[in-house]
């Protein structure tokens, strides 16, 4: 059985985890174009080498990030999302005039 270390719950069998895709920094939704936004939402780089990925410990629904080498399948480290997401992100609500245009 493969093992993975959850930053909250410690080392657990890999069967307790769900893969959540690659992590990419979010482009600024107010200035980015549709193409870049679609790339961010739908596309993966699928890079060979060290990548950062989303993982979820399903027993506790705890999402965290992992750095993994996709060539050797070695997990370099797992860490709490607060390392990256350390402030609230507010989205601008378009006003009625913008919505209609």
């Amino acid at each position: 059985m493969k093992l993975l270390t959850c930053p909250l719950n410690g080392q657990r069998n890999i069967s307790e985890f769900t893969y959540g895709g690659e992590y990419h920094p979010m482009p600024d939704p107010n200035t980015t174009d549709s193409r870049a936004w679609a790339e961010h939402v739908f596309f993966h780089d699928n890079a060979a080498g060290v990548v950062t990925e989303w993982w979820c410990h399903t027993a506790s629904s705890f999402w965290f990030l992992a750095e993994r080498n996709t060539i050797t399948d070695k997990v370099i480290r797992t860490f709490d999302t607060s390392e990256i997401f350390n402030e609230r992100v507010d989205f601008k609500v378009p006003d009625a005039a913008e919505k209609q245009s």
């Binding site: 719950n9 657990r12 069998n13 069967s15 307790e16 410990h57 399903t58 027993a59 506790s60 705890f62």
Partner: peptide, 9 residues
């Protein structure tokens, strides 16, 4: 411990 018991979370 938040874990799996008899395959149940």
């Amino acid at each position: 411990a938040q874990t799996s018991v008899a395959k149940i979370n």
